[in-house]
Structures are given as C-alpha cells and as structure tokens.
Design a binder for these strands. Sequence first.
DNA 1: GACTGTGAATACCTTCACAGCA
DNA 2: TGCTGTGAAGGTATTCACAGTC
Lengths: 241, 241
Amino acid sequence: MIDPALRRGPGERAHGAPLASLVGVSIPRLYAYHRALRQAQEAGKTTITSHGLAALLGHTIASTQIRKDLSALGPLGRRGQGYAIDPLAEQLAWVLGLEHDWRIAIAGFGYLGHAFASFITAREARFRVAAIFDQSPAVIGQTWQDITVQSIGEMDRVLAAAGCNIGVIAVPAGAAQPIAKRFADLGVRALLNFAPIALDVRAPVIVRNIDLAGEMSILTHRLTLDLVADGDDVEAGAGSF
Amino acid sequence: MIDPALRRGPGERAHGAPLASLVGVSIPRLYAYHRALRQAQEAGKTTITSHGLAALLGHTIASTQIRKDLSALGPLGRRGQGYAIDPLAEQLAWVLGLEHDWRIAIAGFGYLGHAFASFITAREARFRVAAIFDQSPAVIGQTWQDITVQSIGEMDRVLAAAGCNIGVIAVPAGAAQPIAKRFADLGVRALLNFAPIALDVRAPVIVRNIDLAGEMSILTHRLTLDLVADGDDVEAGAGSF
DNA sequence: GACTGTGAATACCTTCACAGCA
DNA sequence: TGCTGTGAAGGTATTCACAGTC
C-alpha cells in the first residue's frame, strides 16, 4: 500500500497541510462535510461549528471526529468561533479533486449505467459523461444528452479521443474483467465497478466497488439476528415469513 | 451501538457458534465467500482450502483473513484438508439470512430503482420485489414483473398488505427523509438508501447507505494526488485536463 | 464561555507466527 | 506434510479529555 504524491497543491495558492497528513481520515466523510457546507452556504450562513456540522449530518458523525478530520487539512478553524464556511469548502473541494473537470466513460448503458449518469452529473457540476459504451445493438446509437452510445468494440478508438479519466463498469459480471483491462490499457486510472466480481487490475489503476448485494446481505443478516431474538422471546411471532 | 440478539439459530439444526462471536468479521466479506463457494460448487468441487477461496476472490482477501472469519462461525474446516463446501455454504447462507424469503419495497422507480430491482432479484433467488412506489404520474400504473407501480400516497395501505421486510429508497434527496419515516412507521426495519443524505431513523430500524458520489470522490481524490505528483515531475504534462 | 486542536487512551481490525490435527 | 484455528503483535481508526485561543 504505497500512497504516492504527498506534496502540496501547485501554484500560488496555499492549500494548507501536505496531503500526507490525511492518514486516518476517510474521504467519503470529507465529501459529506463538503455537501453539508454547500447546504449551509445556500442557507446563507458564513460560519459553522463542528457541532453544527454534525447536526447537519444528522449526528451520524461525532463532532470530535469532524474536528480531527478537518484539523488534518490545516488550521482552518478559529477557537471559540468555529469554521469560516467558504475557505473550508474550498479547501475540501481541492482535496477531493472537485475543482478539476472529470471526464467519465460509462461501459454498460442499461438501467444502472443510465441511472449513474443522471445521478452523478446532477450532483457534481464538474463531472461530465464524455463517452458511453454498450454491447447491445438495441442500445448502441441511442443518445443521452448529446452523447451517442457506441459499441464496446469501439472503445479503443473512441476513448483515445475522448480523454476520459474515470471509467464506470456497469456491465454483467461476466463482461467486467475484459472491460476493466481495456480501460486500464487505454490509460484510465480510476474505475468504479458495479459488477459483483473482484477486478484484477494493476498498480496505477485504482478501483472502487459498489457492492449492492453485499449491502443487502448486511440488512438480511441483521434482520435474521432480530428474528432469532424475537423467536426466542415471543415464540414464533406473527408468522410473517 | 447495541448489537441485539446474539443467541444460536432456532430449531434442531446446530448452527455453529453463537453469532456473538462474529465481532470483527465483515458481512460483505462473508457474502463474497458465499458467492465464491457457489461458483466452486457449480464447478463440481466439494472441498476448498482458504487459499483456494482467496484465489477465487482474486486475492483481494488474505487466506488468513478468510480462516479467521470462518472460524468465527464454528469448527467448519478440517486441518490438513480444507473446508467441505456444502455445509460451509449452508452455514454462511444461514448467517447472512439467505435462507429466508425477503420481501422488498422500492420507493422511487426511476432508472436507479429499476436497475436495483433487476439486479437484486437476478442475484438472489430469495429476494422478491413485493411493492413499488413512485411519485410521478408517468410512472404510476406501469408494471414490472407483475408488480404495478403505486403512488407514494398509497404506501400506508399497500405496505400493510404486502408485508415487506426491506425498504429501498431511490428517490431524490429531498423526498428521502419522509419516506424513511413512513417505512419505519409501517414496521419496515431495514432500509437501503441511495439518496445522498443522512436519514434520521430510530432504534430498531437499520440503514445502509449507498454513497455513489462519495465513492466517486475517493477516485477523484486519488487522481488529484497523482496529478500533483506528475505535475511536480513532468511540468504540467500533456495538458489533458 | 465557547469552540478548536491534539496527545493519550481505547477500540477495532488485520497480519503474523505457530500450535494442533488429519 | 498440509492446512486449519488462534493467541499475540501490529497497525489503524475513533473517542476521550483537556490544553490552547479567540
């Protein structure tokens, strides 16, 4: 596990602490802070405390945790006052890479690929879907927001021109691995994978898996625990299942 | 964080260790094992070693980790031989709750809700979509696999009859919280939430969030680190972004 | 007084090393 | 010999307690 590139941001702008100090902070948490800060901005606020942020997040994250995370980014708060929202949001956006434009290629334009495209472009202005691929002749040639769905066979040619940074894999499990390899060979260094298999990709390429069935299994596991407990206490219960 | 109900499974069947000993094992990992075991079963195998399992999982999980996890479920392996696949898969299925039938209600039947319904019913035979709700008049009345999409206003009436155990929230962020409350009030104790907000639900109800934008932010964060490093080394590079 | 920043303490999860068995 | 099972060690994330600052 080598974490490369731990220097400061480029240019004149001081981006607080070197990113090396980010050990121990979870990026999705930082993203949640950023989201909450935008919300506070829209509400007209200019400062916020760690407790206020925790409240905006439904107290799913402790204020202590928030302070620890934010202090890792640099001296952004004022003791006794709280955090100034604008510079904090800006700093978070920089750390999260939200100040760049990202070009996304989607492989597999079924319902899932379609849903992802709509969701992510609505959520982050700088996320652009730049290429869409599918295998099915029924889908190829369709357009989505000016983008024409291309054949998977065209990936090599199209991707070279489209210059995408992020690949999304929304194809059936059986088709995922070769597509991951193709993305990797074409220089796409970040993959979001919805297929329920472990992709085999090498070093500079990073993968995040969205494990829908795995998340469901957490729910069914917990519900089963409840069933066992209830069964012990109330003798078989109302027989719903 | 109280983990309720930590006794054995019911009935004559011995389900190995009490589930209390499952501290430290991640349920998605157990689910991955189960998936790999089914794969091995289909390939005609009857036993497998922890190393063999690791290989099936693309070595994303260490064999030591696998042994630790499985040993928490009871004495399922034989030293020198490996694990007998059938009883192991059965035990995992029980722990994961995969031996029950689960009735799923989906709120929000846009592309995402649709994709989820198709995906999850294809993956697990005992997951059934039993009710679908949407707000849009254009969607209400459509059918999916014999299920008619109902108005969200009908949730109270329909859910009482449908007897669902799991609610899936695939509506816009603004609509998510009231729907979560409604699910909770109607006795649905497990929610899978795709909306990018922290739901406020109380004690017996459990929530899992699928945070698509959060996962994307991990990718953009890592890519930004690379950018900073490359920029330092190659002076602005090829100017792709 | 209010709130941030942070070392120390704790809890948790993973890896290691090896004992125990077939 | 081959592989599981597990205490011990190591590492990482979270919480606590409080010092520091406005």
